[in-house]
Design a protein around this nucleic acid. Structure first.
Lengths: 108, 108
DNA sequence: ACAATGATTCCACAATTATTGAAATATGAA
DNA sequence: TTCATATTTCAATAATTGTGGAATCATTGT
């Protein structure tokens, strides 16, 4: 995963509404949720939600799927994992970290 | 880890220079690097680097330590892990994910 | 065809963020 | 003390980003 992709993903997640949307979809699982369902949960104006969904999708974190007049969005777990891998890459230069560092220091 | 902290961390990482700084320090390990060393690696104007170091520190991702006239910065792996945990929390609503999802879908 | 619903686009405005140079602060060395 | 080095602060500017309303597009049901 390259720097540009990672930056886009981080920028997409670094906003209150978008972080909430992403978490909601992570918890919703592979079946995802329609945009209207998301709006219902989070109480965001339609045009604003659409803007945020576009940002997340463009960053690769969400995958939209047309279903009749609904658009079902689901979280793309692979990009999420790529992001985590990138951030923890070569953690501590190979030197073992202390116990609190279990996740970030797992082998790259 | 609460939403505010997570948002601050994401916003701090969602910028080219800061992401590069953080990665450099992750790879440098617990001993960290002086601000001047970071500047040397990444070629950023001093005032700009200082701004970014402050952002990262304020988000809890970096820990500064005065050492003579140097300031040694090191990455805070715990905040990093908290961030990852928050993002992957309740992934897929308990439903097992496919093989590509190993990291994000580890138990919360 | 028409009306109703779900979603997106366009626009203008407000708010936030990044960058740079110059000045200020702090520590160590001559 | 005086000078040089390391870092931060300040101020001005430029660029990016978030928001909500109205209009638009797409799909379904009557």
């Amino acid at each position: 995963m390259d720097t540009k992709t990672v930056l886009a993903a981080l920028a997409a997640l670094a906003q209150e509404s978008r972080l909430a949307v992403f978490r909601l979809l992570i918890q919703a699982g592979p079946s995802g949720l329609a945009a209207s369902k998301i709006a219902e949960h989070l109480d965001i104006a339609p045009s604003s939600l659409s803007f945020h969904l576009k940002e997340l999708t463009h960053a690769g974190l969400l995958v939209p799927k047309q279903d009749g007049r609904f658009v079902i969005y689901s979280a793309n777990v692979e990009v999420m994992n790529g992001l985590i891998g990138f951030l923890t890459e070569n953690c501590c230069g190979g030197v073992p970290c202390d116990s609190a560092s279990a996740v970030a220091c797992s082998p790259a």
